[in-house]
Design a binder for these strands. Structure first.
Lengths: 128, 128
DNA sequence: CCGTATCCTTCATGATACTG
DNA sequence: CAGTATCATGAAGGATACGG
């Protein structure tokens, strides 16, 4: 994903590359954040209501959850279903692209688990 | 990584779990951010100086790069080598845990590539 | 129950300048 | 060249209240 020059391509192809690259960067900016990852991990392959999600993610404010869900919905990673009942009921689930990203988040969780003690000692060493 | 209760464990084990959990969350907060990912991806399996890194990441300020490198170093993901020459020369490379995380970032890059058109059209649909 | 809007506070970020 | 410190500004985030 660097902005390196690639030879053997026409100017138009170069332009396409950098357009795709800047879009990719935008997606990174959106998605590569703590709350998005935690939401995706929490949703898993299940279906959760707003309040359930908020409770299970833990430590996220009403506002942050709304913002991140809108962002994920906008990128087509989360599907939002509204039941026009009283009181309202809204369900969230991952779409197929969302599930794809979930696989990535899963590998990061596994990575965390694998290296958590290394990281902890690296921190202690650094902080002294 | 949720904060769910797990039965069949002693209080001490529960405490260990939640300690590990909160540490894992801290690591997530540190590492799951745009700049960290871009830096890790840019470093790859190579060795780069501060200024090279800054140039190749692109669009990152001096300060942000320093901050993120310190954070990554603190977590033991990046190794920093200082050559006491004049002018100074500092090289950065990924450690083994850092390489492990790089694998995750790579899968995210692949994911972005795979779904980039879906995401783009989802956005256009949403924004109208 | 869920979403949005508002206000207010805190933090993150960029620009700049200075040091080793 | 690389790092740190300072300052100023804008954005992020929390609390609250109201509307559908």
């Amino acid at each position: 994903m660097g902005t390196k020059q690639v030879s053997g391509l026409s100017a138009a192809e170069q332009a396409d590359l950098s357009r795709a690259d800047s879009l990719a960067r935008e997606i990174f900016s959106d998605v590569a954040n703590k709350w998005a990852f935690l939401i995706i991990e929490t949703l898993g392959d299940g279906v959760l209501r707003f309040s359930e999600l908020r409770q299970q993610v833990g430590g996220i404010s009403h506002k942050m959850l709304t913002q991140n869900l809108r962002m994920l919905e906008r990128n087509g990673l989360v599907e939002r279903t509204v039941y026009p009942t009283v009181p309202p009921k809204v369900e969230y689930r991952l779409t197929e692209p969302g599930q794809g990203l979930r696989a990535t988040v899963d590998t990061m969780c596994a990575w965390t688990h694998k290296y958590i003690t290394d990281i902890e000692s690296a921190r202690q060493a650094f902080d002294s």
